[in-house]
């Protein structure tokens, strides 16, 4: 395959270059994440109007939706990074894929828990087999599989490749799982009122939501970069530049 990529693509393959560039990017993303998440949650909690049907419990949306979106895109990123690592044998891509898994899993847990808490005032039960919650639960299981597989291999490179294959298999399956769960849900529950369906929102409601989503993405970038940096150090621990860093620590 002869595809020409821009220069940064090849530079990304160098662990040291990755380590240096992320150290410059990290503070900016951290500041952005902090500002956006504080503004978004204060706006969402105190200033956004209450939903006419759900009252104030609707304010959970400002955590639930961003984490749910993040959990899904994190899996996408993990599979794509794993695929890049498999095809072009780029070490940093595997590092990123490995760092994605625990973050994505924790976001899926948060989306599940907030969804369940949201369900209590609206459905009167802590858990309802709602299509979105069920798909999120399956996504969480997929994360668990990837994490378990990565850690089962003693040889790091094999664990990386195996996890990448599994993540790619998962990404093919996610749309099928989503579709089948949605179909199963309509079959068994009839037309229940879905809280987690985004209602038609006025701008005072969705602007803070948008801010929270971008904020969570920035926060995810911060976590991903810092996790990947430590992983890079761990894998490059025999090189001189890492030894120098360790001595200075």
């Amino acid at each position: 395959m002869k595809i020409k990529f821009p220069k940064w693509f090849y530079q990304l393959a160098s662990p040291r270059w990755f380590y240096d560039i992320t150290s410059k990017l990290l503070p900016w993303f951290a500041i952005a994440a902090l500002l956006l998440m504080v503004i978004g949650s204060v706006w969402g909690l105190a200033f956004a109007p209450a939903d006419y049907q759900q009252g104030n419990s609707f304010r959970i949306i400002y955590i639930h939706v961003p984490t749910a979106i993040l959990a899904q895109s994190c899996y996408m990123l993990m599979a794509i990074a794993g695929g890049i690592g498999l095809i072009w044998k780029i070490k940093v891509a595997h590092v990123i894929a490995k760092s994605c898994a625990p973050i994505g899993a924790s976001m899926a847990v948060l989306a599940l828990v907030t969804g369940a808490i949201w369900g209590k005032p609206t459905w009167g039960a802590w858990w309802v087999w709602d299509a979105r919650l069920t798909s999120m639960l399956v996504l969480f299981f997929l994360y668990i599989g990837v994490i378990a597989l990565t850690s089962a291999f003693e040889h790091i490179a094999s664990g990386d490749k195996a996890a990448a294959v599994l993540a790619l298999v998962g990404i093919v399956n996610i749309p099928i799982i989503k579709y089948s769960v949605e179909w199963w849900n309509t079959l068994h529950q009839g037309a229940t009122f879905k809280v987690t369906e985004k209602p038609a929102m006025p701008s005072e409601m969705w602007i803070p939501l948008l801010i929270m989503i971008i904020g969570f993405y920035c926060f995810f970038a911060v976590l991903l970069m810092s996790r990947a940096r430590t992983e890079v150090l761990r894998r490059e621990s025999k090189t001189d530049w890492v030894k120098l860093l360790v001595e200075r620590y």
């Binding site: 949650s41 909690l45 209450a50 009252g55 104030n56 419990s57 304010r59 959970i60 955590i63 639930h64 984490t67 625990p102 973050i103 924790s106 976001m107 847990v109 948060l110 828990v113 907030t114 808490i117 949201w118 209590k120 005032p121 926060f219 976590l223 810092s226 996790r227 430590t230």
Partner: peptide, 27 residues
């Protein structure tokens, strides 16, 4: 109080904060 939903809203945000702090701490 958040109407009658204070418990649910604050529980969600509290757990959200815990998960965020856990992530930062583990890094």
């Amino acid at each position: 109080q958040m109407g009658k939903h204070g418990l649910y809203v604050w529980l969600s945000y509290g757990i959200g904060l815990i998960v965020i702090i856990y992530n930062i701490w583990s890094v």
